[in-house]
Amino acid sequence: MEVRTIKVFTTVDNINLHTQVVDMSMTYGQQFGPTYLDGADVTKIKPHNSHEGKTFYVLPNDDTLRVEAFEYYHTTDPSFLGRYMSALNHTKKWKYPQVNGLTSIKWADNNCYLATALLTLQQIELKFNPPALQDAYYRARAGEAANFCALILAYCNKTVGELGDVRETMSYLFQHANLDSCKRVLNVVCKTCGQQQTTLKGVEAVMYMGTLSYEQFKKGVQIPCTCGKQATKYLVQQESPFVMMSAPPAQYELKHGTFTCASEYTGNYQCGHYKHITSKETLYCIDGALLTKSSEYKGPITDVFYKENSYTTTIK
């Protein structure tokens, strides 16, 4: 009895394709271990004539594949690729409408935090270190965002349907971005203890939790000093293409032309909904596939993004 075979390709990165001759009487799992086709788990399936010449994702289970996976995804987590594939199996079914010149995501599976993050990423200057993220990001900007969303979920250790947080998501993504040249110098002034300067680099240099107003941050924000008295913390120097200011959701007025974009969060910790506000020729609110415009805006804002380049204080 002759062994019926077909020729397929296996890959971990969709760049390096490895030619395989597979036995049609055995499952993919018996031949390769966990195997995925377009995100779908085909591990328990036997090869079919229609699979001839198709590319299958496999887990990096030998040295060659491990090197290829690390170079593309910059992670050695053995569960990463499987999590990416199972997320992709959902995100490829989502709709990605162009809204006001940006790629958004039609609401499904509690994905409003991903839509808000995706919209924000198209408006701030950011370059990702893992080629996987950078490639998928370019495709997302062009309207094909399924891979990018699935990668975000995998890097953030999230599953489809789980509630997510924009600030946490951005923080994970910033860790995989090139923020080497970003720098922030802060000064804390206390009447009792004097003053202390701190220099922050990388992710810490672009994120701040405690106030939404970048102007206020430049002037000074009140913080408790270690001595128990009130101290003032203010920005001395900022070198970065953008800054992200966050605070627990509270009524906040966004003035046209003073910011790049913002995240609105309605609801409580267990259950809520994100919308995205962007400042173009007027203010726009993007909620999944829905767009509304207004000249002014007041609502429960939790993150505001500002364009920056270089700032030095005039406070002496």
Rank of each mutant, 00 (worst) to 15 (best):
R167L: 06
P241E: 06
C182M: 05
D165M: 06
F70I: 10
C193K: 00
A140V: 14
D62G: 09
V8P: 05
Y73S: 07
L291E: 12
G210K: 02
F174N: 07
R184D: 00
L173Q: 02
A250N: 09
T232G: 02
R4D: 12
T292D: 06
K307H: 08
R83S: 05
N100G: 07
K44C: 14
N111V: 04
L118T: 05
N111D: 09
T226N: 11
Y72Q: 11
V243C: 01
T64R: 12
K54G: 11
G210A: 02
E162V: 00
E52T: 10
D62I: 02
E125W: 00
Y252W: 10
C190W: 05
L81C: 08
C149W: 00
P47D: 05
C156E: 07
T76E: 12
G267T: 04
G53F: 10
G257Q: 05
T266E: 04
F305M: 00
V58W: 09
D109E: 11
G299A: 06
G194E: 11
H90L: 09
G228P: 02
Q196R: 14
S310Y: 14
E204G: 10
S86V: 13
V99I: 15
K298Q: 13
V304Y: 00
L102Y: 10
L59C: 14
P78T: 10
L153I: 06
Y113S: 09
Y274L: 10
A132M: 03
Q122L: 01
Q134R: 13
R184P: 02
K201V: 11
T169E: 03
V160D: 01
V243N: 01
C261D: 03
D180I: 09
L118G: 00
G161L: 00
E308N: 00
K95Q: 15
C261M: 01
E239V: 13
Q238E: 05
M244C: 05
Y73L: 06
P34V: 15
A250E: 15
S181Y: 11
C193M: 07
I45K: 13
E52C: 10
E296K: 09
L163Y: 11
G210M: 01
C149A: 08
E253T: 15
P130W: 05
G164F: 01
A140R: 08
E2R: 11
A262I: 07
K275Q: 00
E215I: 01
S104F: 05
V189I: 09
K255R: 10
G257P: 01
T10K: 12
T64G: 14
E52Y: 11
V42K: 07
L235F: 03
E125N: 10
A146K: 09
Y113A: 06
D13G: 12
G220W: 03
L88Q: 07
A115E: 04
K298C: 14
T266L: 04
K201E: 08
L291I: 14
E239C: 11
K201L: 08
L81K: 00
R184H: 00
C225Q: 02
N89L: 12
K275I: 04
Y113R: 06
L151Q: 06
F32V: 11
K183C: 08
E168Q: 11
N89M: 15
M170N: 06
A177I: 11
P78V: 13
Y252L: 07
V236G: 01
G228H: 02
K46C: 10
M209N: 12
Y72M: 12
M26G: 08
E215M: 02
V188D: 00
F32Y: 10
D38G: 11
S181A: 15
T266I: 09
E68A: 09
T64H: 10
N100D: 10
L151S: 05
P47F: 03
V304W: 00
K218R: 05
Q222C: 09
G29F: 05
Q123C: 02
A117I: 08
E71G: 02
E215A: 09
T211P: 08
Y297I: 08
S310P: 09
Q238A: 05
C227L: 01
T55H: 09
V99P: 15
S246V: 10
P130N: 05
D63G: 05
G210H: 04
M207G: 02
G39R: 07
C261I: 00
S246L: 06
A262K: 03
L212P: 01
G288H: 07
G288I: 01
E144V: 04
V22T: 08
T302I: 00
T302A: 04
D180G: 12
D303L: 04
A115F: 03
K219A: 13
Q238F: 02
H51P: 03
K46Y: 13
T226S: 14
Y274P: 01
P60D: 14
S104C: 10
V236I: 12
A205H: 07
R66F: 13
N157G: 12
G202F: 03
W107L: 04
H276I: 05
H18R: 12
M207E: 05
S310R: 12
P300K: 06
K93T: 11
F70N: 02
Q30D: 13
G33T: 07
K316Y: 15
K7A: 12
C225W: 05
C193N: 04
F174A: 03
Q134K: 11
V304L: 05
Q20K: 14
K293S: 13
K280Y: 10
T116A: 15
Q216D: 13
D303F: 03
S294K: 12
S25M: 02
S310F: 15
V58G: 05
D109T: 02
Y269M: 08
G143R: 03
W94R: 01
Y84G: 04
V166A: 11
A108N: 06
N129Q: 14
V221N: 10
M245W: 05
W107V: 00
D165C: 10
K280E: 05
S50M: 13
C112E: 06
K183Y: 08
T27G: 04
D287C: 07
L114P: 06
P34R: 14
K183W: 00
Y138W: 13
M209K: 04
K183S: 10
T312D: 06
Y265G: 01
L173K: 05
T103R: 06
Y113W: 15
E204H: 09
S240Y: 00
H48Y: 14
S104W: 03
C227W: 02
P60V: 11
L114W: 05
T258I: 06
D303C: 05
V12M: 06
S181P: 04
L65V: 13
V21E: 15
T282G: 11
L59V: 12
K201S: 12
A117E: 05
A205E: 07
C149L: 09
K275C: 03
E168H: 12
D38N: 12
G39A: 14
T75M: 15
L291Y: 15
V99F: 14
K218Q: 02
T199A: 03
F80R: 05
K191D: 15
H276Q: 04
Y274G: 05
C193A: 07
L65T: 14
T10I: 11
I15T: 11
N309R: 13
N16D: 08
L17F: 14
K95V: 15
S294V: 15
L290A: 12
T260E: 01
Q175F: 04
D287T: 04
V166K: 09
S171A: 12
L126F: 03
E71P: 06
M170T: 05
N14I: 00
E264Q: 05
K298A: 14
T159A: 14
Y73T: 02
V243A: 02
C227M: 01
K95F: 10
K191R: 11
M85H: 15
C285H: 02
A289C: 08
V3W: 14
T11L: 05
I15H: 12
D38T: 07
M170D: 07
K46A: 13
Q122M: 06
K201W: 14
T11P: 06
K219M: 10
F242D: 04
A146T: 06
D63H: 11
T292W: 10
V67L: 15
T199F: 04
V189M: 07
H48P: 10
P241M: 00
Y252G: 04
K106T: 13
Q20W: 08
K44S: 14
D41P: 11
H74I: 05
G164V: 06
L186A: 10
T43H: 12
I152R: 06
Y84M: 06
N129Y: 05
V99L: 15
T199I: 09
K106A: 15
P131L: 04
G53S: 11
Y155N: 03
D23T: 13
Q197H: 11
G228M: 00
V203N: 01
N178F: 00
T258L: 03
H48M: 13
S181H: 15
E52I: 12
D287V: 04
